[in-house]
Simulated scan of single mutants.
Amino acid sequence: MTADTPYIGRFAPSPSGDLHFGSLLAALGSWLQARAHRGLWRVRIEDIDPPREVPGAADRILRQLAHYGLHWDGEVTWQSQRHDAYRAALAELQRAGRSYYCHCTRSRVRQLGGYYDGHCRDRQLAPAGAAVRLRVDTPVSGFDDRLRGPIAVPPALAAEDFIIHRRDGLFAYNLAVVVDDRAAGISEVVRGADLIAPTVRQIALYQQFGWPSPRWLHLPLALNHDGHKLSKQNHAPALPDGDPRPVLVAALRFLGQAVPAGWRDLSTETLLQEAVAGWQLKNLPQQDALPPAAGN
């Protein structure tokens, strides 16, 4: 990203359940960063994994975002409608000799300690029943995060030939994300710190395609009382349907941002306008924490 590049951010939830407080932090942080830069904020529904999707969740997510005043620019992108773009990206990598078919199972990779060893790399296997892996000849060992500074990942993660098309025929998350962010012109990815590790894989894909990488900013995670991040898998409660302002105030405080003393007298729109005006990256905490009680 350069000074002449327009700012375009995004929020990209998967429809595996309703938004919760942790989701709101990612949505609000990315929205505020985009609005503070007078940029655009896109929404993408990452619905490329049907077995994990909850019926009706995508529509509820969009209603929740609107209810909390986080209005997006342009049309919503649906990954389920972009299979042609993913197929074209796979074909490009295949033509360039940057991918290969792999028949190794998850259980074999687990027995290796969790990282793939390149077993199928040079075996010229047939595509039937195979996954497709990216040939990582130049490992990405780390990246600069706008909040956390230089981040390094384990060498085994950086060097792993990772899957970009699954054995079950579904497109892998990392491939779809990179293709979509490139198509949307995303200049900065603002998301939760649980996605730090996949960043090096996404940067590796940007390099393979010869595309410039966006900037990266990973927000702190909200934890439950067991020390685990709030997530749909951990049954985090959905965002309430009532007055959004107390929950927005709790989210702003979690993100280290100032809250107007008379926020109870402000509309949701005005509260968010005040939050944009006062948005300070330097106030973001780097450590994950328990969420505060809404509206305190």
Results as ranks from 00 to 15, higher is better:
190 V>G: 03
192 G>I: 09
193 A>S: 15
193 A>T: 11
193 A>I: 06
194 D>I: 06
195 L>P: 12
195 L>W: 06
196 I>Y: 08
196 I>A: 01
198 P>H: 05
198 P>D: 11
199 T>Q: 10
199 T>R: 01
199 T>M: 09
199 T>Y: 04
201 R>Y: 03
201 R>D: 10
202 Q>N: 12
202 Q>M: 10
202 Q>G: 02
205 L>W: 09
205 L>C: 09
205 L>Y: 02
206 Y>C: 11
207 Q>P: 03
207 Q>D: 09
207 Q>G: 01
207 Q>Y: 00
208 Q>G: 04
208 Q>I: 08
209 F>P: 12
209 F>C: 13
212 P>N: 02
213 S>H: 12
213 S>Q: 15
214 P>D: 12
214 P>H: 08
214 P>W: 08
214 P>S: 06
215 R>A: 15
216 W>L: 02
218 H>Q: 09
218 H>E: 11
218 H>F: 03
219 L>W: 02
219 L>P: 06
220 P>F: 10
220 P>T: 14
220 P>E: 10
222 A>S: 10
222 A>G: 04
222 A>Q: 07
223 L>D: 06
223 L>C: 12
223 L>P: 07
223 L>K: 05
225 H>G: 02
225 H>M: 11
227 G>Y: 05
227 G>S: 13
228 H>T: 15
228 H>Y: 15
229 K>P: 12
229 K>R: 15
230 L>E: 03
235 H>E: 15
235 H>K: 14
235 H>W: 00
236 A>N: 05
237 P>W: 10
237 P>M: 08
237 P>R: 11
238 A>D: 07
239 L>N: 05
239 L>P: 08
240 P>Q: 08
241 D>K: 04
241 D>Q: 15
241 D>S: 15
242 G>S: 00
243 D>T: 04
243 D>Q: 05
243 D>H: 07
244 P>F: 00
246 P>N: 06
246 P>F: 01
246 P>M: 09
246 P>Q: 06
246 P>C: 03
246 P>D: 09
246 P>R: 05
247 V>W: 00
249 V>T: 07
249 V>D: 06
249 V>I: 03
249 V>E: 05
250 A>F: 09
250 A>I: 08
250 A>Q: 08
251 A>M: 12
252 L>D: 00
252 L>N: 02
254 F>V: 00
255 L>F: 11
256 G>C: 13
256 G>D: 02
258 A>L: 13
258 A>D: 14
258 A>R: 14
258 A>C: 01
258 A>Q: 08
260 P>V: 01
260 P>C: 06
261 A>Q: 15
262 G>Y: 14
263 W>R: 03
263 W>D: 11
263 W>V: 00
264 R>L: 11
265 D>I: 00
266 L>W: 06
266 L>F: 05
266 L>S: 01
266 L>Y: 13
266 L>R: 03
268 T>M: 14
268 T>K: 08
268 T>D: 03
269 E>S: 14
270 T>M: 07
271 L>G: 13
275 A>D: 01
277 A>P: 12
278 G>L: 04
278 G>T: 10
279 W>T: 11
281 L>F: 02
282 K>S: 15
282 K>L: 13
283 N>A: 13
284 L>P: 03
285 P>L: 08
285 P>V: 00
285 P>H: 05
285 P>A: 03
286 Q>H: 04
286 Q>V: 11
287 Q>M: 01
288 D>W: 06
289 A>P: 01
290 L>C: 02
